[in-house]
């Protein structure tokens, strides 16, 4: 519970920073850079946020829930399906490599950057 509280506080703190300042920050120890592409960036209104974690093994699912509450329902609908599960079409990229397996079970252990990509087909 203590870790969760700390995570929430840090998440809020990061979001209070001016976006420009966050974008220019080099991630420090415990910080993870989250970037969004395409429709996700449009829905969030930002393409990148830096989050600070006191625990290395934070579940991705918990972070996505937090981000969805921050970025709004449109962003959340792009991430989660009607059953509340992470969409099968969401690409999750850890440190430049696509992550396979059940996205509900992923943790951010040692991860420095997370890229969330929704499918695009503009032509």
């Amino acid at each position: 519970m203590e870790k969760r509280t700390s995570f929430r506080r840090l998440l809020r703190h990061t979001f209070r920073l001016p976006v420009g300042l966050v974008l220019r920050m080099m991630p420090l120890m415990g910080q993870v850079n989250f970037s969004y592409t395409g429709q996700l960036a449009a829905a969030a209104g930002v393409a990148e946020v830096v989050l600070d974690f006191s625990d290395d093994a934070v579940p991705l699912r918990r972070v996505l829930d937090e981000l969805a509450s921050r970025h709004g329902s449109k962003w959340g609908e792009l991430i989660f399906d009607d059953a509340g599960q992470v969409r099968s079409t969401l690409l999750v990229i850890f440190d430049g490599a696509q992550v396979s397996g059940d996205k509900e079970d992923l943790t951010l252990d040692g991860v420095k950057s997370v890229m969330l990509m929704t499918p695009i087909a503009g032509g």
Binding site: E77, L78, T89, Q98, T118, A121, G122
Partner: peptide, 21 residues
């Protein structure tokens, strides 16, 4: 492999500048 089903949120109309395409 990347997208196992048709993405529900993709719309036929999308923002586009010709130089990007």
């Amino acid at each position: 492999c990347l997208y196992p089903e048709i993405p529900e949120h993709w719309k036929r109309r999308f923002p586009v500048i010709g130089a990007v395409s």
